[in-house]
């Protein structure tokens, strides 16, 4: 299955995402903020990145911008995990280069469906 990077400062959220994806056979690496995610991404090649928007140290938007500038991440799908109320954030994420978004709250099924959609 696919190598996926899950970035979220909330351990419970990150855990839910990782658990669900691993359950579906994916190989999941976790990172708790954007900066750590970039460090991990640099030495590896992920096929999908899932990232929270609001995180300490480096938020999801800045992280997407940095990732897109890195070799090997130009066309990789990056999904923002966002709340419906943050339409501006959605657009900001898109402008930074995010592929799409998954609106919180979501359940495991929705997560898997979206991941499946992106990975094709």
């Amino acid at each position: 299955m696919a190598k996926i990077l899950a970035v979220d400062d909330s351990a419970s959220m990150r855990g839910m995402v990782a658990f669900t994806l691993r359950g579906a056979g994916h190989e999941v690496t976790e990172a708790e903020n954007g900066q750590l995610a970039l460090d991990v991404a640099r030495g590896s090649s992920f096929e999908l990145v899932l990232a929270d928007v609001n995180m300490p140290v480096m938020d999801g938007i800045a992280m997407v911008r940095e990732l897109r500038a890195m070799d090997g991440y130009k066309g990789v799908p990056i999904l923002m995990l966002t709340t419906e109320s943050h339409t501006e954030k959605k657009m900001e994420g898109k402008a930074a280069g995010a592929t799409g978004w998954l609106v919180k709250p979501f359940d495991p099924e929705q997560l898997l469906a979206t991941v499946k959609r992106v990975l094709g």
Binding site: G75, I78, G97, G120
Partner: peptide
């Protein structure tokens, strides 16, 4: 378009 990680291939599959 491709730099957003959205590949037309995926869209067409959908």
């Amino acid at each position: 378009l491709l730099q957003t990680g959205n590949d037309p291939l995926r869209l067409f599959r959908e």
